[in-house]
Simulated assay, not measured.
Amino acid sequence: MADPTPIPLQVWCPHVTVACVVADGDRFLMVEEEVNGRLAYNQPAGHLDDRESLATAAVRETLEETGWTVSLEHLIGIHQWRSTEHGDGVVRFSFAARAVSHDATRRLDDGIRRALWLTRDEIAALGDKLRSPLVLLSIDAWLAGQRHSLDLLHSLLVEDSYP
């Protein structure tokens, strides 16, 4: 008689992340963070939580890492990459967002040293201190005018509104 126990499928699952390109004139909102014992620079970014929409995650991560409340304006792009930090695949949804308000007293996420505003040239000069090549890729896509409607995103999740 055959064993009725189903065989579990091995399914590859990438890390799903979100990031926000927030521009103020020629400067972009960045975070300085400690990652695996080194100082790195990134856009406000992080992982999608279970039962959370991509848009909600992007707004949440930006607030948690910078103290800035933002309003999403566009989807810049969806980027696939293999992380040099952990070796896993990453699918990153990059958004363009407008800064709405700042809470300078808000405690930032663990590992985040500070939020700062830098020009594209200052960001490029950071070289290997950038958390990933997706930082400049998404800024350059935004500078080139790459903007897609947020109407491309659909979430069938029941979630609490954020913030």
Rank of each mutant, 00 (worst) to 15 (best):
L9P: 01
D160H: 09
D109W: 07
L75A: 04
R92E: 14
H148Q: 08
T119E: 05
R113E: 06
T62W: 06
W142D: 09
W68Q: 05
A125K: 05
T5E: 15
P8V: 13
R113A: 01
E159P: 11
A124K: 11
L75R: 08
H86C: 03
S161M: 13
H102K: 00
L48M: 13
L150M: 03
V22T: 00
V16P: 02
E33L: 10
I123A: 11
D88S: 04
G145D: 11
T62N: 02
T66I: 07
S155N: 03
D121R: 03
S83R: 09
S138E: 10
E85D: 09
V90C: 11
E32P: 00
S132Y: 11
W142Y: 15
Q146D: 14
S155Y: 04
V100E: 15
D3W: 01
S132I: 08
A58N: 08
L137S: 10
L54I: 08
S161C: 02
T5R: 14
R60I: 03
D103Y: 00
T69S: 10
G46L: 04
S71I: 00
R131S: 03
L156N: 10
A115F: 12
R147C: 02
A99M: 06
L108C: 06
T105L: 10
G89S: 05
D88P: 01
F93P: 01
V70W: 07
G87F: 12
I112V: 15
Q80N: 07
Q10E: 14
Q10M: 15
L39P: 07
R51W: 15
L137Q: 14
E73F: 08
P44W: 06
A144Y: 04
S161W: 12
A55M: 13
A97L: 00
T62D: 00
A23W: 01
D88R: 12
A125N: 01
V11N: 03
R147Q: 08
P133A: 11
E64D: 00
I78P: 04
G77R: 08
R27S: 06
G127I: 13
R114F: 03
H74L: 09
A2D: 07
R60Y: 02
A58T: 01
D24H: 11
T56R: 13
T5C: 06
A99I: 03
A125I: 03
N36W: 13
V18K: 02
H86K: 10
H102C: 04
A124D: 12
C20L: 02
V135Y: 00
V31C: 06
V90D: 09
S101I: 04
A45D: 00
A104D: 07
G46R: 05
D24I: 06
R114Q: 09
A144H: 10
Q146T: 13
R60A: 04
P163L: 09
V11L: 07
C13W: 14
V35Y: 14
P4V: 08
H15I: 15
F95C: 05
G87A: 00
H148I: 02
I7V: 13
L126Y: 06
L136N: 04
D128A: 07
L137K: 14
V18L: 00
C13N: 15
T62F: 09
L156Y: 15
T105K: 10
L157S: 07
D3Y: 00
D128K: 07
E33W: 02
A99H: 06
V35L: 15
V90H: 09
D140W: 11
L29R: 06
A40F: 13
D50V: 15
D50C: 11
T69Q: 07
S155A: 14
